[in-house]
Design a protein around this nucleic acid. Structure first.
Lengths: 222, 222
DNA sequence: GATCCGGTGGTACCGCGGTTCGATCTACGC
DNA sequence: GCGTAGATCGAACCGCGGTACCACCGGATC
């Protein structure tokens, strides 16, 4: 049984959520809140498994409320809901510690599945938003300051050589690189040799260090 | 109607997917491939809306195949499927240009929903994986405030071995390490061998990466 | 057609890296 | 005194890494 706190400034909207959640046996609505401050208070008091959080609310908005609930250390998971898929909302909500972000035009089953996932400790994001987040993520992870592309020693590398350098940075042997890119080991050696020459490294170990220094490789904590 | 190309080296797995996809009216299986190379060829030939791509395959794997199909500029969307939720796979697949990443233990409805989303240009990720991606995305790199001393794999090292590991992290050769500490190269080799064994690295390159991961070595910007 | 570049592939060679055997020496604890 | 752990050194061995040199192909450019 998953306990849920519904946070939305519109009574009708809260009513709709309540009806939906009470129509299935696995969720139990333990409270409602009409604005951020009330949400923070009730979250601390009711300790729900999941908080369904609207973004736009008078007074304290859903983002700030999310931040405070997360900061309070309660184990409640926050599932943010909004009508608008503005990037700022998504960014802010996730930064604030939300476990999920769905649009209000989601189908009922999607919302229920989202609550299930969030309650289980997983995360959900509306597919339409996932696209944009992934684009950013795949493009070498968010904003860590330095952009590898800017390094002059990298601009001289061809696309393939850059891929090879990344592989070296992962600690792969020539054989592993060959297997991964489906090349012969000879070809890999040729590429590696050119990479080393271009970036001014005497061996692949210096190349690994180079990759970390310019941010092409990143420490993998934990 | 969404056209789908099924890529998996296991015929039984392909069969299962085909049965599932043919059980609903909205998807149409237009082809199958048993390995990466065939996938690339058939994707170019059949131009499916969605490619269901297995990761682990003999010869060219799913990651490389994804990269090539995306690079070819076909509008096919790739939905990567795997049994293992290794971060390495997820990273690689997304960087390769996949639009989605699901685990094979997904329920049939989830897979169908994923195909729907991907075909619509959205992206999907298994909730269990989304959690980790968001963690990385949301916390904008927490300044690696890790203390090397805390790592249990380091406590087993003697003082000398720890010095050696630091030297390895700097990219020094055995000869350079010997010169710096005024030792014979044989001794350095002995130490290095023990360090590798203790931290579980197969060669000094893995040791360098290890040193960066635990914060013993730090990227040197510029 | 000629040329250049990037990617791919092969052979041959050599040295470093890593392992596996040893071995001696010191410091410390029982 | 004895045992142990750590540091030091050596010989021999093998494989991977790196270099040198050459070759072929496809596409872009001249």
């Amino acid at each position: 049984m998953t306990t849920v706190l519904i946070v939305d400034d519109q009574p009708l909207q809260r009513y709709g959520f309540r009806i939906l959640l009470e129509s299935v046996p696995e969720t139990d609505v333990v409270g409602e809140a009409a604005h951020g401050a009330e949400a923070v208070r009730k979250a601390a008091e009711l300790r729900p498994d999941v908080v369904l959080m609207d973004v736009r609310m008078p007074g304290m908005d859903g983002i700030e409320a999310t931040r405070r609930i997360v900061a309070a250390g309660d184990r409640s998971r926050i599932l943010v809901l909004t009508t608008f898929d503005l990037d700022e909302y998504v960014h802010a909500a996730l930064r604030a510690g939300a476990s999920g972000f769905l649009l209000k035009d989601a189908r009922p089953e999607e919302l229920l599945a989202g609550i299930r996932a969030v309650a289980a400790g997983d995360a959900v994001i509306a597919p339409a938003l996932t696209r944009r987040i992934l684009d950013e993520y795949a493009r070498n992870r968010p904003a860590t300051g330095r952009d590898p592309d800017e390094d002059p020693r990298l601009t001289s590398l061809t696309d393939r050589e850059r891929e090879i350098l990344e592989a070296i940075g992962k600690g792969w042997t020539n054989g592993e690189i060959a297997a991964h890119f489906v090349l012969s080991e000879s070809t890999v050696k040729t590429h590696v040799g050119r990479v080393l020459a271009k970036i001014g490294a005497r061996d692949r170990i210096q190349a690994v260090i180079f990759a970390y220094d310019i941010g092409l490789a990143r420490p993998n904590a934990g």
